[in-house]
Simulated scan of single mutants.
Amino acid sequence: MSLDHKPRKSWFKHKPLWILVAFLFFVTFTNSSYFAQKATGSPLLLAHRGMAQTFPMEGITDETCTAEQIYPPEHPYLENTIASMRAAFDAGADVVELDVQPTKDGQFAIFHDWTLGCRTNGKGVTRDFSLAELQKLDIGYKYTADGGKTFPFRGKGIGMMPSLSEVLQAFPDRSLLIHVKSNDPNEGQQLANYLSTLPTERLATLTVYGGDKPIEDLHKILPEMRVMSKATLKSCLIPYMAIGWTGYIPQACEQTQLHIPDQIAPWLWGWPNRFMERMERNQTRVVLVAGSGDFSRGFDSVEDLANVPAGFSGLIWTNRIDRIGPVIHAK
C-alpha cells in the first residue's frame, strides 16, 4: 500500500511546479513571435506634418516656439502646406499627418499652433480669424536658425496656409492623419459634420486623432471612422497588458489606431509579430514612434531605424521623410 501511494505523493508534492511550467509554456507559445507568421517587407512611413523643418527636441515644452530654433534648412518646405505634403509623398510617405484649426467662418485651416505669433506675421488666436484672413499671412515669417539674425523663409510663406478642403482635393486618394489640436468637443462635432459629407471610400483613407473630448464626439457621429486619443489608447492597451497574454483582444483594440513608443513596445504581449498579427486581424493600425513618445519624436536618422523590429509591418513615425523614405524604399 505504501509503495502504491509514493508516486501519488510525489505528484502532489510537485504539482505547483508543473502548473507553473504549464502556465509558462502556454504564455510563451501564445505570445512568442517565433510562432507567429513571420513578417516580410518594409515598414510603412508616416510623415509628420509633411516635409517639415526640424529642431532640437531637448528641453522643449508645450510653450516652446520651435520656429525660433530650427536647424539650418536642408530643404525649402514648410510644414502643413500642400507643397510639403506632396514632397513627403514623393519621398515615400504612405501617410501624411496634418494639423487642423477651426476658423471663425466655420472652415478648417491647416496650421499647427493655437496662436499666430510664433510662426507668422500675425497675432492672436488662430480660431478667431476667418480662413481668408489666415490665408493672407506669411506662415514662414518667424522661422530662424541663428537666433533671429536671418529669417530664411520670410516672404516665402504668404498665402501658403491651406484649408482642409484644399488638401483633400489635392490628394483625393492618399492616406491622411488629421490632428485635432484642442480638447473642444464642438470641434469634434464640426469636423465630423464636415467629414460626413465625404464618400465612404474616402473616409476609409482618413484617420483622426487628438483630444479625448473632440474625438469622443466625432466618433459618436462617425462610428465607422478610425480614431485615436489618449482615452482610446488607454482603453485598449491597459486591458491588453493585463490579459493579452491569453490571446484575448479587448473590444477597444478593434478598428482603431495605436501610437506605440518603441521604449514601451517590448512590454506588449506578443511584440512584435504576434501583437501585429492580432491588431491587423482586428483592422487596427499600429504606428511606432520613437523613445517614450513625447513631443512627436520620430525615426529621423538611419541610426534610429535600428530600433525598428525586423519585418515590422506597421507605420513608423518620422519627422524627416526626406532622409528615411529613400533608405526604406531602397531595401
Rank of each mutant, 00 (worst) to 15 (best):
N273F: 00
A252S: 14
S292F: 09
M276D: 00
C236D: 12
A306I: 03
D300Y: 01
A265K: 06
A310V: 02
V308L: 03
P261E: 15
G293N: 09
H329A: 06
K213Y: 13
H329K: 05
P223A: 09
S292H: 11
V308Y: 03
S229V: 09
G211M: 05
C253W: 08
P272V: 03
S301E: 01
N282C: 12
Q283W: 08
T256C: 13
D217M: 12
P326K: 06
G270Y: 06
I243D: 09
K230N: 12
E224V: 09
R320T: 00
G298L: 02
V302Y: 06
M228C: 13
D322P: 04
E280D: 15
A252E: 11
H259R: 14
C236F: 05
G293M: 14
S313V: 01
G325P: 02
D322Y: 00
M279G: 06
H259G: 07
L305R: 02
I260D: 10
S292C: 08
M241E: 12
M279E: 05
R320N: 02
A231C: 08
K213R: 12
V327K: 04
A290T: 08
L222E: 08
K213G: 04
V302G: 07
E254S: 15
R297A: 07
T256H: 13
Q251G: 14
L237A: 08
K230H: 09
P266F: 11
W269T: 10
R297E: 04
L305M: 11
A330S: 10
G270P: 05
D217G: 06
E216G: 12
L268Q: 07
I316W: 02
V286D: 00
D294R: 11
W271P: 06
K230Y: 15
I324R: 00
D212E: 05
G298F: 03
P326L: 02
R278G: 12
G291T: 04
L258K: 11
V289M: 08
H329S: 04
R285P: 02
H329I: 03
A242C: 07
P309D: 03
L233A: 13
P223H: 11
I324N: 00
A290N: 08
F275E: 01
Q263Y: 13
D212C: 04
T232M: 10
K230P: 09
E277I: 07
A265Y: 00
